[in-house]
Design a protein around this nucleic acid. Sequence first.
DNA 1: GCTTGATCTAAAGTGCACTTGAGATTGTAG
DNA 2: CTACAATCTCAAGTGCACTTTAGATCAAGC
Lengths: 151, 151
Amino acid sequence: MALKHSDVLTIGELAARTGVAVSALRYYEERGLVRSLRPAGRHRRFLRSDIRRVSFIKIAQSLGLTIEDVARAFAALPEGRTPTASDWRAISADIRAVLDRRIAELENMRGKLNNCIGCGCLSLKRCALYNPGDQAGKTGSGPRFVFEDHP
Amino acid sequence: MALKHSDVLTIGELAARTGVAVSALRYYEERGLVRSLRPAGRHRRFLRSDIRRVSFIKIAQSLGLTIEDVARAFAALPEGRTPTASDWRAISADIRAVLDRRIAELENMRGKLNNCIGCGCLSLKRCALYNPGDQAGKTGSGPRFVFEDHP
DNA sequence: GCTTGATCTAAAGTGCACTTGAGATTGTAG
DNA sequence: CTACAATCTCAAGTGCACTTTAGATCAAGC
């Protein structure tokens, strides 16, 4: 009886440790973001390392990545293994790149907005702010930046 | 027959001039973002100035404001009048403030991410990046910044 | 052994910003 | 006047990321 409750977590425990709802965890599993053991019986058992995995999902999301983006990032790791420190570093670096692009975009936008306020052109047909072919606001409504966005 | 087709626009014309779908325009009206004349007959007629109004909605959205945010901004103008140049300037200034805050937030986040990559702590429980009580990622999933956010 | 709480599945609901579809009406060119 | 396009209303559907609900099953403490 060496390790039984100490190594694995119930879904409720994982929820408690990550602050993510039980229903959300099930949803993540359904979408392939986490995996659970289903021993003889029926209930899910998670590994301790899934705490990190789930936390990472939330971080990535707070940076604007979608579930799909995260799934892709995870899928890039060899054979669904629990990510190592250097895996995390690689993914984090990707996210930073996305972040850099997003910041640049917003700064660009702010510059244009300042111009716009200054000139008061208001025509908006020729206004730099909302011009087709421009960078910002491309991906539909609301800010959204995804992995696919980078060059 | 001085001015008939020149002063007002059909919904199709407004859609063509703004690049916004007819259905979206009807939705905006329903949500109170634009108003239309409904003369004796039944079809909507829009004012030329609504082109600016709609363009502004799209700009605001591309900056991350919701329909509700825009509605609030418009509602702040005296008695639903067609916004003047200085109205636009005031609203634009508000948006810029939101933009500033958002950029600061992202930069903050980037700094933390850099630290995180550097230190490789990976614990994420104590990681600054995803810490309850912290600024970023508060408003649910995905980046979203609204008027209500400011102090 | 039994009760109680945790967990299970599957389906439906939520909120945002629209789009799509169905079926009726209007407006305009010829 | 008549086609035919544009517009109308109202209801339902879409996509994302979940949550909620319902009814059943499992696990654990007493």
